[in-house]
Structures are given as structure tokens and as C-alpha cells.
Amino acid sequence: MSPVEQKSFRLKRPDFADVPESRRRNMSAIRPRHTKPEHIVRQLLHRLGYRFRLHRKDLPGHPDIVFPGRWKVIFVHGCFWHRHGCGNSVLPRTRREWWEAKLHRNVERDEAALAGLRKLGWSPLVIWECEIGDKEALAQVLHKHLGPPGSRTV
């Protein structure tokens, strides 16, 4: 998407004057990188023997975890922000139209990033926040995507 298209695609930010201060503090504390789910996945990867890089800005979508020798990347997505469809992705009741448009943009951006990575020869994996609770299942998914630790399989 060109910068001109991105600018015209942005939504006008609402005033938020009617939102309670506690809710505004909560929402402003949410960060795009180094989230708790991301830390959990990184710790598990490290325990399993994998080594990786973080947040490569030269790749589409700035993947959370990058394995350059394997040409593999991992995104750790929050269910609400990236519209997983599970019980954690319920839309707020206030300003529903604004949230729908905002979150729809996130999904479109995610799809474009995944397509861009595949086009460049990278193999992406998306791990959802709700999938992190079962460490054994997550370890199997990671091992299947990455291959054995220490190898550089493409």
C-alpha cells in the first residue's frame, strides 16, 4: 500500500472524552512489542534449544521472532487485536463501527505481511495468544514449523 493510500485509509480518531480514565490508562499501556505472550513463546523456544532474532524491521510486518538461517518467522498475535475469532476477540460495545474498521485494518495488514513474506521466500507461522496456555502442544507446533534445534533446514 502506498503512503498516499495509507494516509487516506486512516480513521479519524475519536475524542475518547467519555471513556473512563482507568480504561484509557489500561489501553495506553498495551504495547506492540515485547508482550507477555511473546515473552512466553521466546522463553519456550530458548528452552527447546532454538536461537533467533527479534523484530526485523526490513521484513514485511516486522515479525516478532525471526530465524534467518531457516527462513522462518513467527508472529505472536493477540486474539483481540488481530481478530482470531475465539472468545478473546469480542468487539467492545461502545464505538463498535470505529473498532470494526480499526481491527479490520489490522487483519488486512496481517494478510499483506504474510503474503509479502511468502513472496520473499520466508515461511511464516502465526501463534495466537489463546494457544500459548498449552506448552506441550505449542512446543510440537514450533518443532514442526522449525525442524530440529541447531539445524538450518530451509
Rank of each mutant, 00 (worst) to 15 (best):
G133C: 12
G116A: 07
K72C: 11
H143R: 14
K36M: 12
L138W: 03
W81K: 03
L11V: 10
H39P: 04
M27G: 08
E108R: 15
R83I: 02
P149V: 02
V126M: 04
D64C: 01
V4R: 15
L125F: 01
P60C: 08
T94L: 13
L91H: 04
R70I: 00
K144W: 09
L125I: 04
C130W: 06
S123A: 14
I127H: 08
V41S: 06
A139S: 13
P37M: 03
E111Q: 15
P60H: 07
R13H: 11
E100V: 15
G116I: 04
I74S: 02
E108M: 14
A112L: 11
A17Y: 12
S123R: 13
H145Y: 04
A17D: 11
L142S: 07
R83N: 01
L117N: 05
P148Y: 11
F75D: 00
A17N: 13
T94W: 14
R47Q: 14
D64L: 05
P60Y: 04
P20F: 07
S151C: 10
V73H: 05
D134K: 09
E5T: 08
R95P: 06
F80Q: 04
Q43H: 10
I40P: 00
A17E: 12
L11M: 08
N26Y: 15
Q140R: 14
I65G: 01
P148K: 14
S28T: 09
R70Q: 01
P63H: 01
F75Y: 03
C86P: 07
R70L: 04
